[in-house]
């Protein structure tokens, strides 16, 4: 079902699946076009988690999905505040952050019972991808070009504020030692991880594609990890 939360830019929609009590995962998708490619797998993963008795919430951030905020007006700080607002709404339950790619940069302000990160990346890595995209689009994206020459910056069809990109420069995934933390990676990603699953990363696919096997594997990994956390 679709519910709503009050974010920093106004009312935003969120997809809620599974039981309304007990542990719940709050999903932060990757950024921009990668979110479109990953959403179908993320939603299938939440449906599978619901079958494990775990609730799931997938919010729109300001400037994404159904949001009334213009994409180019959204800021990275707003997304982090929006994430915290949703976590506060869910405070009566044990809320776990499930964040993917750039989404792992968004979940740092919320008070969470644990963080489960899929292919976490730094803000610098997000920016490198933006520069590559613009190189591929024939728009040579040197630093000057990315941060100043064009405003908003076009990132695969999304109009992104240059301030948003500048905010990403020093950002890193949050992993305080006080709460459980698990890193899962996909495919040929060689970076350190608790587990690497042999699957094509959905964010790399040219078109959003269903991958029920991957969705089920991710859900099972999260369910087992939450069971361990809940002890």
């Amino acid at each position: 079902m679709i519910d709503f939360y009050d974010g920093p830019g106004g009312r935003e929609a969120m997809l809620c699946l599974g039981p309304a009590q007990g542990p719940v995962v709050l999903v932060a998708l990757p950024f921009w076009e990668e979110a479109n490619r990953t959403r179908v797998v993320a939603v299938a993963m939440l449906r599978a988690l619901a079958r494990h008795g775990i609730g799931g919430v997938l919010p729109d951030w300001p400037g994404t999905g159904e949001s009334l905020v213009e994409t180019e007006k959204a800021s990275f700080a707003q997304w982090r505040l929006a994430h915290r607002s949703v976590a506060e709404m869910l405070a009566a339950r044990r809320c776990y952050g499930v964040s993917m790619r750039g989404g792992t940069l968004v979940d740092g302000l919320a008070d969470l019972a644990g963080r489960w990160h899929l292919a976490p990346m730094t803000g610098e890595a997000v920016l490198r991808d933006v520069i590559r995209l613009r190189a591929a689009a024939g728009l040579r994206g040197d630093e000057h070009g990315v941060f100043g020459a064009e405003s908003p910056v076009r990132v695969a069809g999304n109009r992104v504020s240059p301030h948003f990109l500048a905010e990403l420069a020093g950002a890193a995934p949050s992993a305080p030692e006080a709460i459980p933390y698990r890193v899962v990676r996909l495919g040929h990603d060689r970076a350190p991880a608790d587990r690497t699953i042999d699957a094509v990363p959905p964010w790399r696919r040219a078109e959003p594609q269903e991958d029920p096997e991957l969705a089920a594997t991710l859900a099972e990994d999260i369910a087992q990890w939450i069971a361990t956390c809940e002890g």
């Binding site: 590559r132 040929h188 964010w203 790399r204 040219a206």
Partner: peptide, 28 residues
Amino acid sequence: PELDSMAVAGVLTELEDRLGILIEDDEV
């Protein structure tokens, strides 16, 4: 038609991961 600029970026990054290479963006 599938090979738009987003897909080009995906192909290059995936090639880097699988071959253990680094592609400079000015080579694209």
